[in-house]
């Protein structure tokens, strides 16, 4: 009899310990946390592709300044009351020294400049042809570019590219 009681006592004590051990990760908390994450994504209207792109761009931007573990990047949305926050967590492998940062920045600038050149070349030919007209109508045309764009969108695709890029050089001219 007394053995039985002792056994039961032991079992009860053990089960008590088991309960306290598993308490941290109970089904309710798991459900709440998973739901919060999933709802944040649902509410942002960001598709998985867009999220992937955002991650990629963030990695590109940040790796100019620090070397980090790109695969361990965590991107979450969090909510406190009505306020939504973007939580980004990336383990930093190593801090970059000044030289490296400058190099990375210079490289990025070069890349940007190349892209600008490419678009400038495309427009260059066209600008020469229109130069005379442009000089007279710059101020007026700037007001109308938006309307022009919308009209051209419906007509032909190649023209859209030109129309969108038209704005850039003109803004530069204005500044000068």
């Amino acid at each position: 009899m007394s053995e039985n009681i002792l056994k039961e006592l032991c079992n009860r004590l053990l089960s008590l310990f088991k309960q306290t051990e598993t308490k941290e990760e109970n089904a309710k908390d798991v459900a709440c946390n998973r739901l919060r994450v999933v709802l944040m994504q649902d509410r942002t209207n960001l598709t998985p592709e867009l999220l992937q792109r955002m991650r990629k761009e963030l990695v590109e931007l940040l790796s100019k300044y620090v070397e980090m573990d790109k695969d361990a990047l965590e991107l979450n949305f969090d909510q406190e009351g009505d306020q939504m926050a973007l939580m980004l967590s990336i383990p930093v492998i190593r801090a970059k020294d000044e030289e490296e940062i400058e190099k990375a920045l210079a490289k990025a600038d070069e890349k940007e400049a190349e892209e600008d050149d490419a678009s400038d070349e495309e427009i260059g030919e066209r600008e020469e042809a229109n130069e005379a007209e442009d000089d007279e109508e710059t101020s007026e045309e700037n007001d109308e570019t938006e309307e022009d764009n919308s009209e051209e969108v419906t007509e032909e695709e190649p023209e859209i590219v030109e129309a969108e890029e038209e704005e850039k050089p003109k803004k530069k001219e204005d500044k000068e």
Partner: peptide, 9 residues
């Protein structure tokens, strides 16, 4: 028993 979300949750 913390197996289901509560009303408050």
């Amino acid at each position: 028993s913390n197996d289901m979300m509560s009303v408050e949750d």
